[in-house]
């Protein structure tokens, strides 16, 4: 997967930028090409706050190329959109349904010792 693909994904990975339909106001993450609800193509960038709660979770990830094997979760963001992301800085047995989490940027993938490093969103329990 390569350099141009990640170049296109920067804003999604680094800033949790999805989009919002100008006609029906529905929000999406990752960004969509056509609004699935009203079929409009008038979609503009929308940056999510990064705060949400856990809707489901599991552990076990692909081994090769991944920076860390760890928990994965479905997270319901405060804007009402659900996303899939890795969890970090939390032990598996501390995770619970409805737990409040916040976005951080971590290393997601590493293409070998010579290859690209991919950074992107993960979520952790809120640090106060």
């Amino acid at each position: 997967m390569h350099i141009p693909q990640y170049h296109r994904l920067k804003k999604q990975l680094y800033r949790l930028e999805g989009n919002v339909c100008r006609e029906c106001s529905h929000k999406f993450f990752p960004a969509r090409i056509v609004c699935p609800d009203c079929k409009s193509r008038q979609l503009e960038p929308f940056q999510f706050s990064g705060r949400g709660e856990i809707y489901s979770f599991t552990r076990g990830t692909l081994k090769s190329h991944y920076a860390q094997e760890g928990p994965i979760a479905l997270i319901k963001l405060e804007e009402g959109v659900t996303i899939l992301s890795q969890l970090t800085d939390v032990d598996y047995d501390q995770i619970s349904f409805g737990m409040k989490v916040e976005m951080v940027i971590r290393k997601i993938r590493e293409y070998g010792p010579n290859g690209l490093l991919i950074y992107g969103h993960k979520f952790r329990p809120i640090l106060n």
Partner: peptide
């Protein structure tokens, strides 16, 4: 990795979830 191509690359596979992992999220909920 091959089986995971059935999932959505940007929304799912990119983040390291396996096909089994997606089903695990469903079973857990």
């Amino acid at each position: 990795q091959g089986l995971a191509t059935a999932a959505d690359w940007e929304a799912e596979t990119l983040h390291g979830v396996t096909f089994c992992g997606l089903n695990a999220l469903l079973m857990q909920r």
